[in-house]
């Protein structure tokens, strides 16, 4: 599988990554090489195999429905690039 410029652009958009126009060919090359490596997966038959999402064959533990957290807004907001009135600010969201 090898990727074209348009594939790289599409993926970069989905992943919200700005990429320099000049760098696209090298991304396309590198990603294609990685996909070539990955294509080795097709050398093995997995038709009867169930996917393994997790190393543990365990069930989810469930938490009691209790409020354990207290307000730490001011502490957390210190890391925010832009805030006002306890809100995180971002460029206008248009719906």
């Amino acid at each position: 599988m090898s990727l074209h410029k348009s594939d790289v652009e599409k993926i970069a958009h989905l992943a919200r990554l700005s990429i320099n126009e000049d760098d696209i060919p090298s991304y396309a090359d590198n990603l294609s090489n990685i996909l070539k490596l990955v294509d080795q997966l097709n050398t093995v038959d997995t038709s009867d195999i169930s996917p393994m999402a997790h190393p543990q064959d365990a069930a989810q533990r469930l938490r009691e429905d209790e409020v354990t957290e207290t307000d730490q807004r001011d502490h957390f907001l210190k890391n925010a690039p832009k805030t006002a009135d306890g809100l995180f600010l971002v460029p206008k969201v248009i719906e």
């Binding site: 209790e66 409020v67 354990t68 957290e69 730490q72 807004r73 957390f76 907001l77 306890g86 809100l87």
Partner: peptide, 24 residues
């Protein structure tokens, strides 16, 4: 209608001041 959120122990009560019920 749970007391706490689905994946954290923050309160789900309606109407609190912004981001005061948003934990890590």
């Amino acid at each position: 209608a749970t007391k706490s959120k689905i994946f954290s122990g923050s309160s789900t009560a309606y109407g609190a001041a912004p981001n005061t019920q948003a934990c890590a």
